[in-house]
């Protein structure tokens, strides 16, 4: 029993839950996301203006050969800002997803395995979950500082309980599996049991959950910027570009729409990939 059965997933229940060939939409989504990541990583290659370089004399200009999408209220190149904005927005998305999983996973494992710890931990998680995430995030950001790290922590905190709950429920059901009971009887160390036997059960749903967290984190960053509790203007993010442009929405809609387009494309892609991952990895979760 040293080798647990694959991922502990049951066989697909229905014909149409079989692994589908990646449809066009998913392939497109992957392509868009790759392009955005490429844009973020190699931002300097795609732009010829620094995103912070300001020229108040040239503010709010329309698109031109020099400024492809025009300039913002400080006379900064909107195109460069959107390209560099991808860096921060994607960092926020990926960072929040990775860290909330990294923190939520061990907590969930512990809660699912140790019944005494469970009661305490889950009350705390219930409490955290009961506080509306956006309120918590606004409070954290405006009460400390508006840096990248703070914003990420603020967005991450409300996500952790969700991860913990997910992992815990998986552990609870896996505990009853014969191979786990056998491992316990054979005196496998707790750590090994958690890491080798119980954790693998949780990975598939976590990957799916992670993509959704990633998408929602990018969106939440934008909302925080809109509410004035986002990352400062010197670091362009899609969220703060949109937030700063919204004053001009009726006069110069491009200031909102281009970044909005990038943001929405990115989130749609991540969501589509998340759906595909769920269909492929975990038919039991086939929802939405």
């Amino acid at each position: 029993m040293s080798k647990p059965v694959s991922l502990g997933l049951p066989a697909p229940r229905r014909r149409w839950a079989k692994l589908p060939r990646p449809p066009l939409a998913v392939a497109l989504a992957a392509l868009v996301l790759l392009a955005l990541i490429g844009m973020a990583v190699f931002a300097p290659w795609f732009t010829h203006h620094a995103p912070q370089a300001l020229a108040p004399a040239l503010r709010l200009k329309g698109p031109s050969a020099e400024f492809w999408l025009g300039t913002d209220a400080y006379g900064r190149d909107l195109y460069s800002r959107i390209v560099y904005g991808a860096r921060v927005s994607l960092t926020v998305g990926l960072g929040v997803a990775v860290f909330s999983v990294a923190i939520g996973l061990p907590l969930g494992l512990l809660a699912g395995y140790f019944r005494t710890l469970d009661a305490l931990l889950m009350r705390v998680m219930d409490g955290l979950m009961a506080v509306p995430g956006i309120l918590l995030a606004i409070a954290i950001v405006s009460l400390s500082s508006a840096g990248l790290a703070t914003v990420m922590v603020a967005i991450m905190l409300p996500e952790i309980p969700q991860v913990v709950r997910l992992v815990r429920s998986r552990v609870l059901s896996a505990r009853e599996e014969p191979y786990v009971e056998a491992a316990v009887l054979m005196g496998t160390s707790t750590f090994k049991l958690l890491a080798r036997h119980l954790m693998p059960n949780t990975l598939a749903p976590l990957i799916v959950q992670g993509t959704y967290i990633c998408a929602s984190a990018i969106l939440t960053e934008a909302i925080l910027s809109f509410l004035g509790a986002g990352i400062g203007t010197e670091t362009p993010t899609w969220g703060n570009i949109i937030a700063e442009g919204r004053l001009y929405f009726q006069l110069k809609p491009g200031l909102v729409l281009w970044a909005g387009l990038a943001l929405s494309l990115c989130i749609v892609s991540i969501n589509l990939l998340g759906d595909a991952a769920r269909d492929a990895l975990d038919p039991r979760m086939k929802k939405r």
């Binding site: 939409a25 969106l219 949109i242 009726q250 929405s264 969501n271 589509l272």
Partner: peptide, 21 residues
């Protein structure tokens, strides 16, 4: 299905401004 993906991929304030306009 595709319009619904858009529904939760566009920030709510962009939707608000769009509808207002």
């Amino acid at each position: 299905m595709s319009v619904s993906v858009l529904g939760f991929s566009v920030p709510v304030f962009v939707i608000g401004y769009g509808l207002t306009t």
